[in-house]
Amino acid sequence: MSGNGNAAATAEENSPKMRVIRVGTRKSQLARIQTDSVVATLKASYPGLQFEIIAMSTTGDKILDTALSKIGEKSLFTKELEHALEKNEVDLVVHSLKDLPTVLPPGFTIGAICKRENPHDAVVFHPKFVGKTLETLPEKSVVGTSSLRRAAQLQRKFPHLEFRSIRGNLNTRLRKLDEQQEFSAIILATAGLQRMGWHNRVGQILHPEECMYAVGQGALGVEVRAKDQDILDLVGVLHDPETLLRCIAERAFLRHLEGGCSVPVAVHTAMKDGQLYLTGGVWSLDGSDSIQETMQATIHVPAQHEDGPEDDPQLVGITARNIPRGPQLAAQNLGISLANLLLSKGAKNILDVARQLNDAH
């Protein structure tokens, strides 16, 4: 009898209710805020589980004197976190989706994509230029951005401005803007500013005609071990179906173009009346040469937790077992079709030249 009692006690200790789920994140304040929001949602869904947040620095956090596009290494903000995932030191990792490459290392998958916040870019102005827009900034004003995508589009749109690289986390960039006289304004992701509670610093939100956004911008991705079915089931509740389908289309477009950090590629997606609209573009580094096109596809946005595919093969690095396969494939095909259209119009040449120029500098 006593033996059975011990077995029952052991089973209770090993039951999922007692389990601590370890969540990996970057150390920056924004990353911690984003991770806290994901953990809060998981806690609400699984009140019996405990969650421990483990923060670590990544290569991208450490190399702050070089433009991201020049470092010449993929997975700048993800490699150390993936290493911890691989060694079973954490069970899942919360990322900004735009930091996750469209091809993940073997053994990993994006197990959830959370509801997207505003994906557009924002302009934050130096205190002396508050009330201005990019259009009304004085001639030769210097605007800071760490992104080739932003610089290429904005140089084309605002030729009277000069664009220079600015690195560091959000706090560091804002301090550089406010305390030094080098920059009249800087460009940042609206979602990051909003998550930090800095709505009052948003001086201008850039519309798609001015600057399309990065693939996955404004959404959070939760990376897990691809074979860890328990954790895949656990994080599945975080999937937002519309965000998922938009981001599958965007990531398929980028992957098929073979774009990345070192080339200016941008997108804009919208879901309306059962249609998914995808606009994508590529630019030369100075913005003088560009190709942009829009395509659409009829896609039914499923309700969360309709029964999805059981075999769960990944699409552009994403596993969404609780979302039907048909809409996911339709979104992926839309991204591939748009990429093929741009490639047929000469996108590869623009991107190759951009890559060579970026590598040469």
Rank of each mutant, 00 (worst) to 15 (best):
Thr269Cys: 15
Thr190Trp: 14
Val301Pro: 01
Asp312Ser: 01
Ile54Asp: 06
Leu81His: 11
Tyr277Arg: 12
His126Cys: 13
Ile110Phe: 05
Ile291Leu: 11
Ile110Glu: 04
Ala360Asp: 12
Gln50Thr: 10
Ser165Gly: 13
Gln34Asn: 09
Lys345Tyr: 14
Phe163Ile: 13
Asn169Arg: 10
Pro105Ile: 07
Pro208Asp: 04
Gln153Asn: 01
Ala55Lys: 07
Ser290Ile: 15
Thr136Tyr: 11
His199Thr: 06
Leu285Glu: 05
Val94Ser: 01
Val143Glu: 04
Gln304Leu: 05
Gly308Trp: 11
Glu80Ala: 11
Leu220Cys: 09
His300Met: 01
Leu193Pro: 08
Ser284Cys: 10
Ala122Tyr: 03
Ala331Arg: 01
Pro208Ala: 07
Ser165Leu: 05
Met212Ile: 15
Leu68Asp: 09
Gln29Lys: 12
Glu82Val: 06
Trp283Val: 01
Gly144Asp: 04
Val235Thr: 01
Ser288Tyr: 06
Glu310Pro: 03
Thr294Gln: 01
Ile350Ser: 04
Leu137Thr: 04
Glu89Gly: 08
Leu193Met: 14
Lys70Ile: 13
Pro119Phe: 10
Gly259Asp: 11
Ser28Leu: 01
Lys132Tyr: 11
Ile186Lys: 03
Glu250Leu: 01
Gln34Glu: 01
Val93Ile: 14
Asp273Glu: 11
Asn118Gly: 04
Ile248Arg: 04
Cys114Lys: 07
Met56Ser: 14
Val265Arg: 01
Gly48Gln: 14
Arg150Ile: 01
Val124His: 01
Ile248Cys: 01
Leu351Glu: 14
Leu92Val: 07
Leu68His: 05
Pro302Tyr: 08
Leu278Trp: 04
Ser337Gln: 01
Lys79Phe: 05
Leu174Tyr: 09
Phe163Ala: 12
Asp286Asn: 14
Asn200Ile: 13
Pro105His: 11
Ala152Glu: 05
Leu174Met: 14
Gln332Ile: 01
Val267Ala: 05
Leu100Cys: 15
Ser262Asn: 15
Gly216Tyr: 05
Pro302Arg: 04
Thr190Gly: 11
Asp233Glu: 11
Gln328Ala: 06
Pro324Ala: 07
Gln50Tyr: 12
Ile63Ser: 10
Thr319Lys: 05
Ile21Cys: 05
Arg32Leu: 08
Val142Pro: 06
Ile186Arg: 01
Leu30Lys: 01
Glu89His: 08
Ile205Val: 12
Glu250Ala: 01
Thr269Tyr: 01
Ala347Ser: 12
Ala347Pro: 15
Asp65Ile: 08
Pro327Ser: 05
Ile186His: 07
Leu329Val: 15
Leu161Ala: 05
Asp273Tyr: 11
Leu244Glu: 01
Ala112Glu: 01
Gln275Ile: 05
Arg246Asp: 01
Lys345Pro: 01
Ala297Pro: 01
Ile33Tyr: 15
Gly168Tyr: 01
Leu154Lys: 05
Gly280Phe: 01
Gln181Asn: 06
Gln356Thr: 03
Ala320Gln: 03
Leu81Arg: 01
Glu89Lys: 09
Thr319Asp: 07
Glu293Ile: 09
Leu64His: 15
Leu92Asn: 12
Thr133Gly: 06
Thr35Pro: 01
Met56Trp: 08
Leu329Asp: 09
Ala320Ile: 01
Phe158Ala: 09
Leu234Gly: 04
Gln314Asp: 01
Gln194Asn: 06
Val265Ile: 11
Tyr277Phe: 14
Phe51Met: 09
Gly317Met: 15
Val130Glu: 15
Ala112Gln: 07
Glu162Asn: 05
Leu49Asn: 03
Lys176Ser: 10
Ser45Tyr: 13
Gln229Lys: 08
Gln217Tyr: 06
Arg246Lys: 06
Leu245Lys: 04
Pro106His: 13
Lys128Gln: 06
His305Lys: 03
Gln304Ser: 14
Ala31Gln: 01
Leu85His: 01
Ile54Asn: 09
Leu351Pro: 09
Phe253Glu: 01
Leu238Arg: 01
Ala112Gly: 07
His83Pro: 06
Val222Glu: 05
His120Met: 12
Ile54Tyr: 11
Gly346Thr: 08
Val224Ser: 15
Lys43Ile: 12
Glu306Thr: 03
Leu206Lys: 01
Gln229Leu: 09
Ser290Leu: 08
Ile53Thr: 07
Gln204Arg: 09
Trp198Asn: 12
Leu206Ser: 04
Phe163Asn: 14
Asp230Cys: 01
Asp240Gly: 01
His95Asn: 13
Leu278Gln: 15
Ala152Val: 13
Ser147Asn: 01
Glu89Pro: 01
Val143Ser: 03
Leu68Gln: 06
Glu223Ile: 03
Arg26Tyr: 01
Cys247Gln: 01
Val90Ser: 07
Leu68Tyr: 11
Thr41Tyr: 10
Arg246His: 05
Gly131Ala: 12
Arg246Met: 09
Lys98Arg: 01
Ile71Met: 15
Ala331Pro: 01
Val94Thr: 06
Asp352Pro: 14
Arg246Pro: 05
Pro264Ser: 15
Leu104Ile: 13
Gly317Ala: 01
Leu329Gln: 15
Ala270Glu: 14
Ile318Asp: 04
Val38Cys: 09
Pro138Thr: 10
Arg149Gln: 03
Lys272Asn: 14
Gln155Cys: 13
Pro327Cys: 01
Val263His: 03
Ser284Glu: 01
Ile53Pro: 15
Leu338His: 01
Val103Arg: 11
Val39Gly: 07
Leu285Val: 10
Leu285Phe: 14
Ala252Pro: 01
Asp178Gly: 13
Val38Ala: 08
Tyr46Leu: 08
Leu161Trp: 07
Ala112Pro: 05
Glu179Asn: 12
Ile318Pro: 01
Met196Asn: 09
Ser75Asp: 06
Thr319Val: 01
Cys261Arg: 03
Ser69Val: 10
His95Ile: 01
Gly259Gln: 01
Val94Trp: 01
Gly281Cys: 10
Glu117Met: 06
Pro302Leu: 12
Leu245Trp: 10
Thr133Met: 12
Lys79His: 12
Pro309Trp: 05
Leu42Gln: 01
Asn118Ile: 13
Ile318Gln: 01
Gln328Asn: 01
Met295Gly: 14
Ala347Arg: 15
Ile248Ala: 03
Val38Trp: 01
Pro324Tyr: 07
Ser290Cys: 04
Arg325Lys: 08
Asp240Ile: 06
Ile33Asn: 11
Ala40Tyr: 14
His300Glu: 12
Arg26Met: 01
Ile113Tyr: 01
Ile187Asp: 01
His239Gly: 01
Gly259Phe: 11
Leu244Ser: 14
Pro324Gln: 10
Pro101Met: 05
Gln181Cys: 01
Ala112His: 01
Pro309Tyr: 01
Phe77Tyr: 08
Asp240Cys: 12
Pro327Thr: 07
Arg149His: 06
Arg164Glu: 14
Lys115Gly: 13
Ile71Pro: 08
Asn169Ile: 04
Ala84Ser: 09
Ile291Ala: 13
Asn322Thr: 07
Thr58Gly: 01
Phe77Glu: 01
Val20Ile: 10
Thr319Met: 01
His126Glu: 13
Lys140Met: 10
Gly168Ser: 01
Gln217Thr: 01
Leu341Tyr: 07
Leu232His: 07
Thr172Asn: 12
Gln153Ser: 08
Gly326Cys: 13
Lys98Glu: 04
Glu258Ala: 04
Asp307Asn: 14
Gly221Glu: 01
Thr41Asn: 09
His305Cys: 14
Thr279Glu: 07
Gly274Trp: 10
Ile205Ser: 06
Leu76Tyr: 07
Thr59Trp: 04
Asp99Gly: 04
Gly287Asn: 03
Leu238Thr: 01
Arg164Cys: 10
Gly308Cys: 10
Leu137Ser: 06
Phe163Trp: 13
Arg246Gly: 10
Arg167Met: 07
Ile110Pro: 01
Leu76Pro: 10
Leu238Pro: 07
Gly216Glu: 01
Leu85Lys: 03
Arg321Val: 03
Ala152Pro: 07
Asn171Arg: 08
Thr58Lys: 01
Thr279Arg: 06
Asp352Tyr: 14
Lys128Leu: 11
Lys132Met: 14
Asn171Pro: 07
Ala151Phe: 09
His120Cys: 12
Glu52Asn: 04
Phe253His: 05
Gln314Met: 01
Ile336Lys: 01
Thr136Gln: 10
Leu206Tyr: 01
Glu210Cys: 15
Leu154Thr: 08
Asp121Ser: 04
Asp230Asn: 11
Ser28Asp: 01
Glu117Asn: 06
Ser290Gly: 12
Thr41Met: 14
Leu278His: 03
Thr319Arg: 01
Gln181His: 09
Ile350Asn: 06
Lys79Met: 09
Asp91Ala: 08
Gln292Arg: 09
Thr133Leu: 09
Leu170His: 09
Asp65Ser: 10
Ser45Trp: 10
Leu92Thr: 08
Glu82Phe: 15
Leu234Thr: 06
Thr145Leu: 07
Leu49Ala: 14
Gln217His: 06
His126Asn: 11
Lys74Asn: 13
Glu82Cys: 06
Gly24Asp: 01
